[in-house]
Design a protein around this nucleic acid. Structure first.
Length: 392
DNA sequence: TCTGGGGTCCTAGGACCC
DNA sequence: TCTGGGGTCCTAGGACCC
């Protein structure tokens, strides 16, 4: 979905038409804590973007206004409402596509292989095998025609879904169509907003080669900087590095990246993905060492974690983690794994407190640094009673 | 400039077991 | 006196994603 949170606010508030919209923390006239969640395209013109400190966004908006640009509206994140809109969109998609993998509130992979009929499916398999073993079939006109027919069917379907999202929800999406999740995802980063980018198998390398390595999902600022030091800038440069070299630099991820640089990705579209952890955290308006304040916050978070656990039908947890971030952003976590599963509030409260208390004195906090954030989480989750597993 | 909140996956060392 | 190899689990931290 394009600028999802900001687009929803814009849709619901016609009086904001033409204005900049920034959804995120309260800027409090420039002294607010927190970051931008989503900026609409008008606000992006001023250099405002996701994850930017809200104070900086506020200053950019002020400067833009002085230059004669329209006003910028700052709005809080209404997560519960955005989730409901997200659900409606996923329902629209599922009316057209049986296999859908939702990866976040505003993104999903759609398996469109059913757009090929049996005969065509056979040919597509031949072609993808050919990709791994280059040879004659690659340029066969028959194979290419088949793919074009499949892709045209898929494109028609995508346009139908886009049109229905637009008419039902008044929102736009940008879609990438490709022969794997990797290619679809990278294609969907192009032609925003309201776009559709199609990369047919024959053009995968032509598409990837000129892209900066940072466009590959999983390459973030640290890995990008590492590669720049090695004079590797484009996917075409990355492709020349041996598998062994990448593994020695990056471990397991290196083997994965070696495949990705060549456009190879055989990961499946997974419909059922279950959360492996549940956590809550909060950054305070002011850094503090007040025990009564922090313990009260901790207890509230523990209650919310357990409530969410129950709402999601999770029967118990084994591991508790407490996170502390100090005023200087140093972040420390402490965790403890219990001998058996539990869903008891008293136990979670006790365990969280045991992990947290040392941070209030010199045991875990020798310089008594003020605390900026605390968090609580549970993992090692049990979803259903053991008996029902047996029955299934 | 001053850095949210909710997640996933990977690594590495130590304990422990056979 | 000088201590293997392989596996699993726990803990802490870090990179990354939306």
């Amino acid at each position: 979905m394009d600028a999802f949170f900001a687009a929803i606010e814009e849709r619901n508030n016609p009086q904001f038409a033409g204005l900049g919209i920034v959804v995120g923390a309260d800027p409090k006239n420039g002294i607010g804590r927190g970051v931008v969640s989503t900026a609409n395209y008008q606000a992006r013109k001023y250099g405002i973007h996701s994850a930017m400190p809200i104070s900086q966004a506020f200053r950019l908006a002020q400067a833009a206004l002085k230059r004669g640009n329209p006003e910028t509206i700052f709005l809080p994140v209404n997560g519960a409402y955005y989730s409901r809109v997200s659900q409606k969109i996923m329902e629209i998609i599922q009316r057209y596509v049986p296999l859908v993998e939702q990866t976040s509130i505003d993104e999903a992979y759609l398996d469109l292989t059913f757009c090929a009929d049996e005969r065509e499916k056979h040919n597509v398999i031949l072609v993808s095998e050919e990709r791994a073993h280059p040879g004659s079939l690659w340029d066969s006109g028959q194979a290419r025609m088949t793919i074009t027919a499949d892709y045209n069917k898929a494109i028609d379907l995508i346009n139908k879904i886009k049109a229905e999202i637009a008419s039902q929800e008044k929102l736009t999406a940008t879609v990438g169509l490709g022969s794997s999740k990797l290619i679809a995802k990278m294609a969907s980063a192009k032609n925003k907003p309201d776009g559709l980018t199609v990369v047919i198998p024959a053009e995968v390398e032509k598409f990837l080669d000129p892209l900066p390595i940072g466009d590959i999902p999983g390459i973030g600022p640290k890995t990008e900087e590492f590669f720049h030091q090695k004079k590797i800038f484009k996917v075409a440069d990355l492709k020349k590095i041996s598998r062994e070299q990448l593994i020695s630099w990056l471990g397991k991820w290196g083997a994965d990246l070696y495949q990705k640089a060549k456009g190879i990705d055989d990961s499946a579209v997974e419909t059922e993905r279950e959360a492996k952890s549940i956590s809550e955290q909060e950054t305070f308006e002011e850094d503090t060492l007040s025990g009564s304040f922090l313990i009260e916050k901790l207890n509230k978070m523990v209650e919310r974690v357990l409530e969410r656990m129950r709402n999601e039908d999770i029967k118990g947890f084994k591991t508790v983690t407490v996170t502390v971030r100090f005023f200087d952003f140093q972040t420390i976590s402490r965790s403890h794994t219990l001998g058996e599963f539990t869903d008891k509030l008293s136990i979670l409260k006790m365990e969280a407190l045991k992990l947290f208390l040392p941070f209030l004195d010199r045991r875990e906090n020798p310089k008594l640094k003020p605390i900026r954030l605390i968090g609580v989480g549970v993992e090692n989750l049990k979803r259903i009673e053991e008996e029902s597993i047996q029955k299934r």
